[in-house]
């Protein structure tokens, strides 16, 4: 039963992060919110695995944790260098706020 409470808590946290993802003024707020959202998803998959009594959900959670990290770093690299790294050119004083 307590896992239902944990799942509800995670859902509330995810909704808050989605609001920040939508509102976030700068790009990096959105990257931060999406990274945190990914971590909540990993925990949510783990809790669901316990709720439905299926231990193989944890493999999915582990995979999701790996992909989430790679995705965040890829998005950061794109916004930092303006390209995925084929031609690394330092951008002019790009937008800040």
């Amino acid at each position: 039963m307590m896992f239902v409470v944990a799942a509800f808590a995670l859902i509330v946290a995810m909704v808050c992060l989605l609001v920040r993802l939508y509102v976030g003024p700068t790009v990096y707020d959105r990257v931060l919110a999406s990274n945190a959202f990914g971590t909540q998803t990993v925990l949510f998959i783990g809790v669901l695995g316990f709720l439905t009594g299926r231990p193989d959900f944890l493999d999915i959670a582990l995979l999701y944790a790996l992909i989430n990290f790679i995705g965040t770093i890829a998005v950061l690299k794109f916004f930092r260098y303006g390209s995925m790294g084929d031609v690394v050119k330092r951008p002019a004083k790009s937008e800040g706020e």
Binding site: T26, Y28, V31, L32, N35, F69, T72, I73, L76, F79, R80, K93, S94, E95, G96, E97
Partner: peptide, 14 residues
């Protein structure tokens, strides 16, 4: 990833 986000934001002028 939090460190990477912070350094990317700092370098890009935030």
């Amino acid at each position: 990833s939090t460190h990477a986000t912070a350094s990317a934001a700092l370098v890009s002028g935030l």
